[in-house]
Each structure stands twice: as structure tokens, then as C-alpha cells.
Amino acid sequence: MKEFTGKVWVLGDDIDTDIIIPTEYLALPTIDDMKQYGFYPLRPELPGLIQEGDIIVAGKNFGCGSSREQAPEIIKALKVSCVIAKSYARIFFRNSINNGLLLIENDQIQDAVKEGDTLTVRVGEALVAGDKEYPIASLPDNLMEILNAGGLVRAMQRRNGILKED
């Protein structure tokens, strides 16, 4: 069972993909060029403050808006370990799985933590904040297969016989 602990950044409801990465930066050549503009309209300071392994805790409908896959890619590039939100928009959810970004659905942790707190995640089991535990569900099998393969690109590479099995 995978377990990790990280510092929490708190965001609100309906964090849309234009907030995660505005359209005007999408034509920059690489995700590394774009990531400094992550959350720019709302919290421009975040990319400079987020440390490897930090956790984003947000409200409902996280990732609503456009289909831009750069949104989960930027969160991953900022080395955020996972996002915990009350709910996710459909395309963002698929894009995150396909890029190996772990998303956790929970609607209680928002009241239990504040920005700067630390939080422990036991994947597929529970969130631990202080002395309290909050149960979390595991993902359906077909999604776990993609996540376990390391994302859709690797799953397809395996299908096409160009991935050397570890």
C-alpha cells in the first residue's frame, strides 16, 4: 500500500482549467515553460511556493472548463503528489488518469485542514489529518490499469510492443 505525507495548499470550488493554465500560455513550447504560470489568474505565487510532494485540497468541480491536458500536466510538473477535491470535471478526470496524476475524491477533508497543514494519504484507503481518518475509495479496475502502467502512453506502448517490460 502506497502512503505519503505532504503540505496542503487550499483552493476553492470550481477551479477551472483557465485558472490552472490560461489559454495565452498554452502555445509555449513545453510544460516546463508553462508551469510558472500555473494558477496565474487566482494565485500567481503558487508555482514558486509549491514544493515536491505537496497536496492540493479543493472544493467541488475541480478542473472544470476546457479539455486542455496541460492542466493536469502542470500540476504534475509542479511535483504535487495528488489533488483531493469534493468532485472533478469529467475531461480533467480522464486527462489526469492518462497522465498518471492521482486524484482523490473526498468531501470532508476541506473542513479538517487549512493551508500549510500536513496530511497523510494512504492510497485507496484513507486520508489522515491529525488524529482523524477519512476513508477514501479506490478507482475502477480499468482506470487502475492505466495508472499502474504509468499513464496511457505507456499502456499503448505496451500494446504496440515497444515497451520493454520491467
Binding site: 479539455s67 475531461i91 480522464r94 492518462n98 496511457l152 502512453v153 504496440n160
Partner: peptide, 28 residues
């Protein structure tokens, strides 16, 4: 594009996906 839902107006099931999934469809 997320607004791919538009073609529902003619009774087509259409929806948006990311480019990695698109690449998978292009091949399969």
C-alpha cells in the same frame, strides 16, 4: 475541445477528450 458536446444538436453523441486519449484513438 471541451465544447465538442456541440454536435448533440443533431443527435450525435460527441464529447471532449484530452490529446493523449486522442492519440490513442488515432491509432486504435
Amino acid at each position: 475541445d471541451s465544447h465538442t458536446t456541440t454536435y448533440g444538436s443533431v443527435g450525435c453523441f460527441s464529447t471532449g477528450i484530452g490529446y493523449t486519449e486522442m492519440a490513442g484513438i488515432l491509432g486504435t
